[in-house]
Simulated scan of single mutants.
Amino acid sequence: MTESIKNKIKNIRELRNYTQQYMADQLGITQAGYSKIEKGKTSISYAKLQQISIILEVSTEDIINFNSQTYIKNLNAADHADKVNFNECKILKGLYEDKIKLLEKLLDRTELELEYCKKKHNPCCC
């Protein structure tokens, strides 16, 4: 079942967290008048659709082609990608932390060897 334009406008408005009153104010109409647009009680001209698209910061084509199910799927996919990226970052962080620990051990060992060499080659200066 395809969504009607009125439902698409409403869904996009809600995704933007805009109230009907905000939309009405931007369009220069009453909230009740705007509500009739979303309820389909008023026919909407292409010019009005263009005004609405500007307020919603999307193109008229985006409104016409909007599919809430696709949007939710894309949102979930993006959320999954963020989790994957976060996990990759955690793995990389762990690898770098392990490398730092190894380098610190190597530095400690090198310092011990240096002290040993100093004592061996200059026993009277220690």
Score class of each variant (00 low, 15 high):
Glu3Ser: 14
Ile5Val: 15
Ile5Ser: 02
Lys6Phe: 13
Asn7Gln: 15
Lys10Ser: 04
Asn11Pro: 01
Ile12His: 00
Ile12Asp: 00
Arg13Leu: 02
Glu14Gln: 12
Leu15Ser: 06
Arg16His: 11
Asn17Tyr: 07
Asn17Met: 10
Tyr18Gly: 00
Tyr18Gln: 02
Thr19Leu: 06
Gln20Pro: 03
Gln20Met: 11
Gln20Val: 03
Gln21His: 08
Gln21Ile: 05
Tyr22Thr: 08
Ala24Phe: 05
Asp25Leu: 04
Gln26Val: 02
Gln26Ser: 10
Leu27Tyr: 01
Gly28Thr: 04
Thr30Val: 04
Gln31Ser: 04
Gln31His: 06
Gly33Cys: 04
Gly33Arg: 02
Gly33Asp: 06
Tyr34Met: 01
Ser35Cys: 03
Ser35Pro: 02
Lys36Glu: 09
Ile37Gln: 00
Ile37Trp: 00
Ile37Met: 03
Gly40Cys: 08
Gly40Trp: 01
Lys41Val: 07
Lys41Gln: 14
Lys41Cys: 08
Thr42Met: 09
Thr42Phe: 11
Thr42Trp: 09
Ser43Thr: 09
Ile44His: 00
Ile44Trp: 00
Tyr46Trp: 06
Ala47Cys: 05
Ala47Asp: 12
Ala47Gly: 10
Lys48Thr: 14
Leu49Gly: 01
Leu49Asn: 01
Gln50Thr: 13
Gln51Tyr: 02
Gln51Phe: 02
Ile54Arg: 14
Ile54Phe: 06
Ile54Glu: 15
Leu56Ile: 03
Glu57Phe: 07
Glu57Trp: 05
Val58Thr: 05
Ser59Ala: 10
Ser59Gly: 13
Ser59Arg: 05
Ser59Tyr: 03
Ser59Phe: 06
Thr60Cys: 10
Glu61Cys: 10
Asn67His: 05
Ser68Gly: 03
Tyr71Arg: 06
Asn74Thr: 07
Asn74Leu: 14
Asn76Ile: 11
Ala77Asn: 10
Ala78Asn: 11
Asp79Ser: 10
Ala81Gly: 07
Ala81Val: 13
Asp82Phe: 14
Val84Asn: 04
Asn85His: 11
Asn85Glu: 13
Phe86Lys: 08
Phe86Arg: 06
Glu88Lys: 11
Cys89Asn: 11
Lys90His: 08
Lys90Pro: 04
Lys93Ile: 13
Gly94Tyr: 03
Leu95Arg: 15
Tyr96Asp: 13
Glu97Ser: 10
Asp98Thr: 10
Lys99Gln: 12
Lys101Gln: 09
Lys101Pro: 00
Leu102Met: 11
Leu102Gly: 13
Leu107His: 12
Arg109Met: 08
Thr110Lys: 12
Glu111Arg: 10
Glu113Asp: 12
Glu113Thr: 09
Leu114Ala: 06
Glu115Arg: 05
Glu115Asn: 09
Tyr116Arg: 15
Cys117Asn: 11
Lys118Tyr: 12
Lys118Cys: 05
Lys118Phe: 14
Lys119Thr: 05
Lys120Met: 07
Lys120Pro: 00
Lys120Val: 04
His121Gly: 00
Asn122Arg: 13
Cys124Trp: 15
Cys125Gln: 13
Cys125Leu: 15
Cys126Ile: 07
Cys126Leu: 09
